[in-house]
Design a protein around this nucleic acid. Structure first.
Lengths: 224, 224
DNA sequence: ATCTTTTCTGACTACTTAATCAGTTAAACC
DNA sequence: GGTTTAACTGATTAAGTAGTCAGAAAAGAT
């Protein structure tokens, strides 16, 4: 009855499940799990309410499917650190990507925020395993950079939290930001300025250096 | 019937309203407005459900009263900028105070976050007036500092948002932070390290200088 | 001690909403 | 074109929840 949901694209099934998930993501982000009704999702997806239960057995399952979709997107941004051994480039790339996601898919970030605020009832397993491991491998990299003098000796977790907090703030608190922007949406130029300023503040803040030995060489050369 | 709620302390009324507000703050923070039931607040406050309606006419009024209490606390921290003309001291003090609040009253921050994520249905008026004016007076101060060379030329709003985002992250995302801290609560030493690291990163990031002319003098002296 | 006001609460009402299901329509296949 | 499978949906059920209210209990005043 409810199989091969994501297989062959552009069937009735795939079109409807996508429409429902898109609608659900917006509703859950804006009203939380409890505050969202099947009826409101149905209305937004332009389908009758019983149809939601036809494709997804329950509100809970629909919510979890939503959350899983968000994970996949976020994992992509995390790859910035994977192969790049230059803190300046790696941080800049990661911050830029996360700000792009905050701009393009703020709902995902909001659902995540809601989840964590409420003690991660649905995602706890993911936090304790996937995120825990990813974070530890990144902080290990930060420590390596610190031992090479390419990063200031501050707690590596704090660096990550500041980046997460700041980049996600532009999704989660966008309503507040818009009010403080005289009620106007952030335009293209403002987003570019934000990316540039956040990168500049973080890079200077954590003392990121592209290559310490290279810099030393340069200094030596200047000295000659 | 429902007057002088906060007047004479330690009456039955004041004790009960405080108990209800404390319980409501925790419940609203953890489950959002919709997700919180009068029954759960009553249970936490150890009072029968009908009692909540006796003191507060409705769930909505109780929620608004909660939100107003949070405002008062936050306003206190904002005073750090009011009289101090030294960016290093002012930023350090503000960040430290906000982190203290995140530690001591995380519920308030969570309720605020929930509100903004959902488009600030209750606080919009406050945002558009009080916060708007406060923010503008602070960014004006930042611009003054920038013109004196005591602050790097980045968008002043971005500086504020980074501070808000980071300090509130330690309240709103505490659950995630605890998981990544091997499931353990942050201890006294860790909180001190966070304060110190966040101040250090922000101050270096925005290029805050206590007094540019004083530094010049020092440099001149060294040159002699 | 009696009266008045405040505090309190069990029982009830009106409403919302997730989930079910029986039966209908549409699509796919042979 | 007939048969099977998938898609759909109106009507109903069951559970939960905000808010009401009449009257009891306690506190306070005289």
């Amino acid at each position: 009855m409810n199989r091969n949901s994501i297989l062959r694209p552009d069937t009735v099934r795939s079109r409807n499940t996508t429409a429902i998930l898109d609608a659900a993501e917006l509703e859950f982000a804006e009203h939380g799990f409890k505050g969202t009704t099947i009826a409101s999702i149905a209305k937004r997806a332009k389908l009758p309410p019983a149809n939601i239960h036809y494709y997804f057995g329950s509100k809970e399952i629909l919510y979890q499917t939503c959350v899983e979709r968000i994970f996949d997107i976020w994992k992509g941004a995390a790859e910035a650190f994977d192969e790049i051994d230059d803190p300046v480039v790696a941080f800049s790339l990661y911050i830029t990507r996360k700000l792009d996601i905050s701009r393009e898919r703020p709902s995902g970030s909001k659902i995540w925020a809601n989840e964590i605020i409420q003690g991660a009832p649905t995602m706890h397993a993911f936090l304790a395993k996937d995120l825990y491991e990813w974070t530890n491998s990144r902080t290990a990299l930060f420590r390596k950079w610190q031992s090479e003098g390419r990063l200031k000796p501050v707690n590596p977790n704090t660096i990550l939290y500041m980046i997460w907090a700041t980049t996600q703030h532009y999704a989660d608190f966008y309503h507040q930001i818009r009010v403080l922007n005289d009620g106007k949406e952030l335009d293209e130029a403002q987003w570019e300025e934000i990316k540039s300023d956040v990168c500049s503040i973080i890079l200077a803040g954590v003392g990121a250096k592209s290559d310490f030995s290279a810099k030393q060489v340069q200094v030596d050369q200047t000295a000659k």
